[in-house]
């Protein structure tokens, strides 16, 4: 192998052992080789990048930012919907409360009206009963007063008669009436 290399060394830039003489980079013999393959590799890289890789990555990045924007917009929309729903719920709650209050007030008013009516009726009945009772009491009282007067007159007459006096009815009545008033 080694001897073979010795024999086939075919470059001005290699010594007899296949080692470099000076810097291989500066060896003019190899420069066309390097430039040729560099241009081939650069062309291949440029083709791959500009035709396939970069458009694809650009598309992916654009799609991603689009997706992110869309998702953010959708999230914003959902948030708005949620707050709308919340507002609607609150409103419904307030309405329901107001309605409940109204119903309570109505019921109260109804009950009050009924109560008032019943009270008035009861008052009326009570008043009637009172008047009736008062009339009865007055009658009884009148009756009693009359009886007392009669008894008093009779007693007075008898007393006067027993004492030997003779009194006329008119005087006795007047005296009894005056006493009764006191």
């Amino acid at each position: 192998m080694a001897t073979e290399t010795h024999e086939t060394v075919a470059s001005a830039c290699l010594d007899s052992h296949g080692g470099a003489i000076g810097m291989p980079q500066l060896c003019g013999e190899w420069i066309p080789h390097q430039i040729f393959w560099l241009l081939v590799a650069l062309a291949a890289t440029f083709f791959v990048m500009s035709r396939i890789a970069l458009p694809r990555i650009a598309a992916v990045l654009a799609e991603r930012s689009g997706t992110i924007t869309n998702d953010l917009a959708a999230a914003e929309e959902l948030k708005n919907k949620a707050s709308e729903a919340e507002a609607a719920y609150d409103k419904a709650l307030v309405d329901a409360r107001a309605q409940a209050q109204q119903i309570v007030a109505e019921a109260k008013a109804e009950i009050q009206a009924e109560l008032d009516a019943e009270l008035a009726k009861a008052d009326e009945q009570i008043a009637a009963k009172t008047a009736e009772s008062e009339a009865a009491i007055a009658e009884i009282r009148d009756g009693a007063v009359k009886s007392v007067t009669d008894v008093a007159k009779a007693t007075t007459k008898e007393l006067v008669a027993a004492m030997g006096g003779k009194a006329d009815a008119k005087t006795i009545t007047a005296a009894v009436t005056a006493r009764m008033k006191g």
Binding site: G19, A20, P24, Q25, H33
Partner: peptide, 26 residues
């Protein structure tokens, strides 16, 4: 031989490296 690593070597055979030769650079 720190500079020997920069020597272009023909991939197929030990011949001289011409501009078109596929080498380790290639």
């Amino acid at each position: 031989h720190p500079l020997d690593q920069f020597i272009p070597k023909s991939l197929f055979g030990d011949g001289a490296v011409h501009w078109y030769t596929p080498s380790n650079l290639t």
